[in-house]
Computed example of a mutant assay.
Amino acid sequence: MMRDLFEKEVKKEERLFLSLCSQEDKQKVTQKIPMTFHDYLRITCIISNLRLFDYEVKIGERFPKYHEMKEEMLKRHEDILREYPDYYKDEDFDKKEQNWLLEFCSQMPDTCLQKKYAKKFGLKTQEKA
């Protein structure tokens, strides 16, 4: 019963993500072309910022090796942050995330959607002259 509800929500969230993402990302998440660990980090960052939490779980299940690698990376980051609280700031993690989100928005074919999601993500976009 709970699994059915989860799967129903996953399908809904997946449809939304696939309607917004690039053709290449669509092929990666559906396993038609290979995904790299970097792709996995970027895509899960976007999915998380879209608040598609059930779909994010499903992507982790679909790519268990990368999910495990990400968990290990986050544990290492926790250790680093204890000793070096400015680690994320100094390594420009925010800028990397902002760039991924901007890139995601800019590839959307509809400018209204681009603006809607840029606003949702709290991004400062460049207005085209």
Rank of each mutant, 00 (worst) to 15 (best):
I33T: 15
R62Q: 12
K28T: 05
D4G: 03
L102R: 13
D92L: 07
P64L: 00
R3F: 13
Q23S: 08
P85N: 07
K124M: 06
Y88P: 00
R62S: 15
E56I: 02
H38C: 00
E97D: 11
E24Y: 00
S48K: 01
F121S: 03
E91F: 04
Q98C: 07
K116R: 11
Y40M: 03
E24Q: 13
K70D: 08
Q98G: 05
C45R: 01
K28L: 07
M1E: 10
D90R: 14
K11M: 06
E72N: 09
R15K: 14
Q114T: 13
C112A: 12
E97M: 03
S48M: 00
R62A: 09
K12D: 03
I47P: 00
S22N: 04
Y40G: 02
K89S: 08
E127K: 12
S19I: 03
K65Q: 13
F37E: 11
R3V: 09
R3C: 02
E24N: 09
E83M: 06
E7P: 04
N99Y: 08
V57R: 05
E71V: 09
I46M: 05
R42G: 05
I47C: 02
V29Q: 09
Y84N: 15
F104C: 01
Q27I: 00
K95G: 12
Y66V: 02
T44K: 02
K96H: 04
Y66T: 00
K70R: 15
E71L: 09
Q98N: 14
E78G: 00
D86E: 14
S22C: 05
T125H: 10
V57A: 07
E24R: 07
E7A: 01
F37Y: 15
L52E: 02
F17K: 12
Y84I: 09
L16W: 01
R42E: 01
